[in-house]
Amino acid sequence: MKPDRALLLHLAVIAALFAMQYVLPAYHQGNLARILVLATFATGYNILFGYTGLLSLGHALFFAAGMYGAGMTMRFLDWPALAAFPAGIVAATLLAGMIGALALRTTGVAFMIVTLMFAQAGYLTILYFNEFTRGDEGFVIVQATRNILGFDLSNDDVRFVAAWLIFSVGLLVALAVVRSRMGRVLVAIRENEERTRMLGFDPFPYKLSAVALSGAYAGAAGAAYALLFGSVGASFASIQYSIEPLLFVLLGGTGVVLGPLVGAIVIFYLIEYAREVTTAYLIVVGVALVLLILFARKGVLGSLRRRTDGWLP
């Protein structure tokens, strides 16, 4: 039997990431933990955008739903972190399912605008209920409550391993999904929705599942962000957090499972570097978007895949 090259590659990446904590200095280890959480967010986004071909401009809302789902249950209901984390995922998945059911009635440009509008309405709603959400200012989750089964999530090493664990699970699930029958149908919908319908598949449940699944990823990332870094705020629901996963995916490679990780690492450090040089560091985001869409539509790994007989999933 031939060895499963793709699975081995992904396991190797996961192992290499784990080993990074022994190699990297503390500062970069902290950065990598943050990158892994954001990459988890983008890995889910990739299933929707990269594999299903649906460009959402509103995923910040699901990230924030995960964040507030975890943060609010801990703050107001005194839930332990172990229960708050899945609460965030459930909140985001349900919200994504509801918004997806509405937004998927539209296609193309209208889908992008509808998702953008819902996310904006969500962002404004968080601001409106300032009394509970603390608006843009946000609130801090008490450090003592940020522990799971005795592990202190605010500890640097624990935090890294937790972020790594969430990313690894997300990566392997994404790999399994895109290689499954469902993943094939999603790609078929991306390539030609009409023809997929003709082949006897109803695209709607598949598209809705893709929205909900990407929402679950966003929720997991948002909840993890709240638990690992302790801050919850409305700014995470702003348009910038909808653009970031799109940018990560575009740079790393749309429709490549490992793409978002590569994109997240590159963009994170580009922004970090630009931040030292100028206050207008977000210009990096703008320039990267324009250059990518003009000259490198396939992203880093997308271009690489064309030279590897396409076995890279």
Partner: peptide, 16 residues
Amino acid sequence: EATIVATIGLLYILQQ
């Protein structure tokens, strides 16, 4: 899709 992504990029470039 490409023009939307490009104008988002333009948004950041002009604003920054």
